[in-house]
């Protein structure tokens, strides 16, 4: 089964995340990653969902049935930039520190905290690059790790923006008619 990246714009209301996840859970598929946050339009949140699924067109249609879902796209085969961030707390006794710093530089990762025997590294990049860095740094001893999950954006003018939606008087998103 192919991995798919789905981008969804949803109204920022209680329960909307639960509805989206419930719809995917219903068919017994696992969500590989999920990132949710504000979009460029107030009142509209943006989700990036990564799932392994055969019949993604059906998922997209089902998601549209949810009242609070405004726009859904499967961007898997689109030219997209994808990023993920991770925080890694690594075992870093004195003698190992130069190696870890050097490796971090190679991957454009930042050391953001240094403790007595640990360092916290922040790394941002494509999901593959993040994975690569984790593989390289793992032998030093990862004490804690958190990945944000993938966020995705289609390159160029054609995109998946919320600009057809503007905030109305109630603070909710409202669709602006677009000419086709």
């Amino acid at each position: 089964m192919k991995k798919h990246t789905i981008v969804a714009l949803v109204q920022d209301r209680p329960g909307v995340l639960s509805r989206v996840i419930g719809l995917i859970r219903r068919r017994g598929f696992n969500i590989e990653s999920l990132a949710v946050g504000h979009s460029e339009t107030p009142g509209v949140s943006r989700m990036t969902i990564v799932i392994e699924w055969e019949d993604v067109e059906q998922v997209v249609k089902q998601l549209y049935r949810l009242i609070e879902v405004l726009k859904v796209s499967d961007v898997t085969d689109d030219p997209v930039v994808e990023r993920e961030m991770t925080l890694i707390k690594i075992h870093a006794p004195g003698p190992k520190r130069p190696e870890i710093v050097a490796l971090s530089e190679v991957f454009d990762a930042k050391i953001i905290d240094v403790g007595a025997n640990t360092m916290v590294i922040e790394m941002t990049g494509s999901p593959a690059k993040v994975q690569n860095f984790i593989d390289v740094i793992r032998p030093y001893g990862i004490k804690e790790m958190m990945r944000t999950g993938r966020i995705a954006m289609v390159r160029g003018v054609r995109g998946h923006n919320a600009e057809e939606f503007v905030e109305n008087a109630n603070g909710h998103a409202e669709r602006v008619p677009v000419m086709n």
Binding site: I67, V69, L70, R175
Partner: peptide, 13 residues
């Protein structure tokens, strides 16, 4: 109660 209601359903058309 405010009965001056304008439905706001951008995702339901």
């Amino acid at each position: 109660p405010d009965w001056n209601i304008k439905l706001d359903l951008p995702g339901y058309k």
